[in-house]
Every structure is written in C-alpha cells, then in structure tokens.
Design a protein around this nucleic acid. Structure first.
Lengths: 192, 192
DNA sequence: AACAGGTGTTTTACTCGTGAAACATTCGCC
DNA sequence: GGCGAATGTTTCACGAGTAAAACACCTGTT
C-alpha cells in the first residue's frame, strides 16, 4: 500500500484523534498520506493503511538505523543475521537450515557463506552420512565478532526505542506479538 | 538484530508472560529466538529485540503478502507506491519529489519511470522555467489502474489484520504512531 | 539391482536498487 | 560578465537477492 508520504511543509498542529477512547494518532508521515487519500477518495476505509503504513515505516527506519553500526563492524544485516543464527542455535547448521532461519533463499545463503568463509568467520564441513549436506559452524573469530557486536546493537535498539516509556514498549510488544502469531498462522513463516 | 528464528518443533504450550500486568507475548518466532539468546547469554536485556524483531517480522510478512496481488496486476510494490504518490498528491511531481515521497534513490526512480512511461502509465514534461526539471504526471490509464487496485489492496489488508479486533488494531495504530513520531524526529524521514 | 521421485547445494541469468560520477543548468556573489 | 557552488536528472558500475536450472545424491518401491 502507499503509506509512503512526503514532507509537506506544515505549521505546528495538535495531535489528531483517529479512533475511540484515549487512542491518539500522532502527526507522522502516514497521517499526511492518509489525508491525501481521503481528499482523493472521500469515504475510503483507511484504517488498515494507517496501521500497516506505520508498521512499514517504523520497520524501515529501524532497519536503516541498525545498518550503520553493523557496517562499521564490516557486516551487512543479512550477514549478521546469519552469524547470529549460528550463535544462538549453538550448533552447526546446513545452508538449508540457515536459509530457513533467516528467511532467505538458498542462493543468497550460498553467496553469503562464500564471503563469510573467506573472512574466516565460518567454516564448512561435509556430512559423513549424506554427501549432499554441508555443515556450517562459527569459527572462534566469528563467535567473538558476534558477541562483540550484539550488546552494542541491543543498547542502540534500547536507545532508539526510548522515546516510548517501558509500558508503551511492553504494550507494543504484546500487540505485535498477537499480530505476528496471526500472520504466522495465516501467511506462514512459522510452524510451532 | 537477529530476531529471525527457526521453526523448532514444539508441543502446544501456554502463552508466555513477558512483562508486567496483563501484557502477554504470544508464542511466535521471535519468542523462539529470544529464548535461544537467553540460553547463550543469560541475563541479556532482550526487550528491544522482542519489540523490533516482531516489528520486522510483521512488516516482512505483510509486505510479502501484499506483493502477490500487486504482481497479479502487473506492478511491483515500488511501482505501485510511485503511482500512488502521483495519485494522492493529485498533481505532477518531479523525479526528485517522487524519490522523496517513496524514500527511494533518484536512480531507482529514473528506472521505474522509464518502465512506467513505456507502459503508458505516466508521462513526462519539461519545465518552462528550469531546463533541468522534469514533471511527471499520471495518464488516465495510470490513474484508472491505481484506482482499480487500491480498494482491493485495502480490503486485503483489512482481511489480514482481522485476526486482531478493532480495539487492538486501534491501540496498535496509536502506539506505532507514537513510535513513528519519535523515530521520524530522531532518525529523520519526515519534517513536519 | 533398477528406477522414479525427492532432496541439498550450487550455479546461472536476471532484476533491482544503490552511491557516485557525469552532465547540464541555475543561482548568487563579485 | 565571470565564476564557484549548488541543484536536478540521468548514467554508470556494482552488489545483493531471486527463481529456476543443474547436478549430485538419497530413499523407497518393485
């Protein structure tokens, strides 16, 4: 959906109510976009757009924000995810496992592994029982790299979320979890 | 962050509380990942990951879901966004405007415009005052395409969100808006 | 043992987006 | 008018990800 907006110059204005009770929607980019759509199609049911648009924008901004510190450490997010999957599972994984863990294609994983292997962050071993299978494990260097980066990433995340109080964060987490459970059930991506 | 998890086989289990009061976090993929991290680094402060991980997963699943119907209509999401920006602003925009509206690079916009122009969905005009500037407007065909697609997209969005009741949706919208306002202020992406 | 179907990984050919460079144009200052 | 700086768009060279194909290997049935 086209939740992406543009920066119309605007004077300061009070937050705009957009629902029942105490629920308030702030003056963000999505609000601008929604208003534009209402002008074009009066009566358009935009509530889904108001939610999904914001979800996408928040995700985009957060991902973008996190990419910078990772880049400083010489890793892309995808690479960090892959290394992280190895670290948190605590065992060797096959390329297929890694593809599933990181919601990537096999081809992408192959490419990444090539690079990470060349950098000495992961190592490959064959499987004694099945010659098709490759096992990938973290090297000590790879593990140290992940362990060195993770606390800083988490601290950074805490920092960017600090604009919401802990109650709001917990509420948001719970609601997102409810949504995610629904989406995973409905659209796949997880089989509990 | 590595909120991306994997589908560990699991027996049915009750929802796990993860905060104060009535806030409950469901049994989703992120939960699995967080547990793994806790096993690796006991005492790790994972609350930020629990929020951001879910945000990213929800966004990814929703975007993926929306891409399919658009593809049926012969458009990528980026193309739809671009056409949508023209439609909702209701006037011609420059490539630079479109890049800002859609959070894309100028090079990407140039490419997309080339394709959309060839398909007769947009048209280009020079600027009478500044020879550098190009104005892009929707053709009638382009406008009809957007108008034809939008209601179905919104209905689909309403459908995928229907796993949450309207109160939950409104709460989520409000909290996301609060977060987005903070992020936009802190990380840029909007100048009200 | 032979074979069809399935599986794991890699390769291939391609698309898409990016940052930087290129180029033309405009603006403001002297 | 001349010039440096800024601006708008496009081009360029590249990296990243994808679906499908390729290939090797495994499994289950006859």
């Amino acid at each position: 959906m086209t939740a992406h907006g543009h920066d119309a110059p605007r004077a300061a204005r009070p937050a705009t109510g957009s629902g029942e009770g105490g629920r308030t929607v702030g003056d963000d980019r999505v609000m601008t976009v929604v208003r534009q759509w209402h002008a074009v199609h009066p009566g358009l049911a935009t509530a889904p757009m108001e939610l999904i648009g914001r979800l996408n924008r928040c995700a985009a901004l957060l991902q973008q924000a996190e990419d910078a510190p990772l880049r400083s450490a010489g890793l892309s997010r995808a690479e960090f995810d892959l290394l992280g999957a190895l670290r948190r599972t605590g065992r060797a994984l096959t390329p297929g496992d890694l593809a599933r863990e990181t919601f990537s294609s096999g081809a992408a994983v192959t490419k990444r592994l090539k690079q990470l292997t060349e950098r000495g962050l992961v190592e490959r071993r064959g499987d004694s029982r099945d010659r098709r299978v490759i096992h990938i494990h973290l090297t000590e260097q790879g593990r140290d790299l992940v362990d060195g980066i993770l606390p800083g990433q988490l601290a950074y995340e805490a920092s960017v979320l600090s604009g919401l109080d802990t109650g709001e964060q917990a509420d948001l987490t719970a609601l997102l979890s409810a949504l995610l459970v629904q989406l995973e059930g409905r659209l796949g991506g997880f089989r509990p």
